[in-house]
Design a binder for these strands. Structure first.
Lengths: 198, 198
DNA sequence: GGTGCAGTTCAAGCGGTCTTGAACTATATG
DNA sequence: CATATAGTTCAAGACCGCTTGAACTGCACC
């Protein structure tokens, strides 16, 4: 079959396109870094994005060692990155039959990951802010000689916070909707073409 | 830092008017920090949010020195923070008649600031990503022995990026719309009540 | 059992950002 | 002009999260 059994020695030569040992092809490097930047922009680690991008572009599962070499990361780092990504469900750990090592393949729901984690962050975070503002209001109300316009402003602040929160929720919802179209495009190829030989 | 949970119970000995020299009233500290956290969450400096919140809550313009004392910041830091905020149009520098010092008052368009800066960031950033992916595609196409499914995945990546971008734009637009309602509520009070009541 | 490789964990180091504090400029006042 | 206070600038350092590299576990094969 394909190059699934990589069980060669240390110097096992790459079968086809990618150098497999050293560094990526230039175009891969660019694309991988682009995704890394995006993902960092969204508050994740740059290398989490790079790993996902590499796995996605390659289309077939890679081992931790390969990722380590291709992206020039440390062993420990790769281990942690993979664990994060797996926990979020954006990569999948597979053990091929009669193979001893784990391989990792990209899921296509990077978007789900982003919206999911944003949602999560937002949930805890917004709850906290809301609680704080409520607490502030409670305290402020017990104050006796407080000018009423001050309290008013505090209340407006809380209102504003609520609206921003609502906008954020809306965003998550719409972005998910908007993106689901793209995802469907992804999907038909995703699971199929993985071993969709040429 | 300090000024976090304040478990004192009602009837706390806090004076009615803020100490003016020392630290804020507990409820102010909480509200100010809450805003600081939000603003930090959006990628700004925490203290930028705190300064704006203080100015907004107080309703009347404060001097740099007052801000410095109330929020326990350094002189230089306050200067820089104020400049940032002013540049973004979320605070206003005013010189009262027969007064020699500058005072700073909050504008109400914190939201405009957030959306504005997000927009700005997004513009430069997304353009960059887009260019990178285009470049990657260009390079990849010139490669001869490249499996076609790889190129396909790269293209899908670009498509995804575009969709996310579109979603982001939509978010900014809607959030602005959504919030403009709140802003109008803000406005009627904002400029008027500054030194009203009394 | 022993050797070697895959994978995990974590203290220490590195790099980037934010804040500080002191030197500096500007402006008003006697 | 001397002094004092308001405001700005920036190098040094505090701070914080990410990455590294080494020690460790676990597993397979000899």
């Amino acid at each position: 079959m394909k190059g699934y059994l990589w069980t060669g020695g240390p110097g096992s030569p790459a079968s086809e396109a990618p150098p497999a040992d050293g560094r990526l092809a230039p175009w891969e490097a660019i694309a991988v870094d682009a995704v890394g930047n995006v993902i960092e922009f969204w508050g994740f680690k740059r290398n989490q994005g790079r790993v996902w991008a590499l796995l996605y572009l390659r289309g077939e599962p890679l081992t931790a060692g390969e990722i380590e070499r291709e992206l020039d990361l440390s062993k420990g780092g790769v281990s942690m990155l993979l664990r994060d990504l797996e926990r979020w469900g954006v990569i999948q750990r597979v053990r091929l039959p009669q193979d001893t090592v784990w391989r990792y393949g990209a899921e296509n729901d990077l978007v789900r990951m982003v919206t999911h984690v944003i949602e999560e962050r937002e949930a805890g975070f917004v709850a906290r802010i809301r609680a704080d503002l409520a607490e502030a209001r409670r305290l402020a109300e017990t104050q006796s000689g407080l000018p009423p316009d001050r309290l008013q402003r505090l209340e407006k602040m809380a209102t504003l916070a609520e609206h921003v929160e609502r906008a954020l929720r809306l965003f998550i919802k719409t972005s998910r909707l908007d993106v689901s179209g793209v995802l469907s495009v992804f999907r038909d190829e995703a699971t199929g073409a993985r071993r969709g030989s040429k």
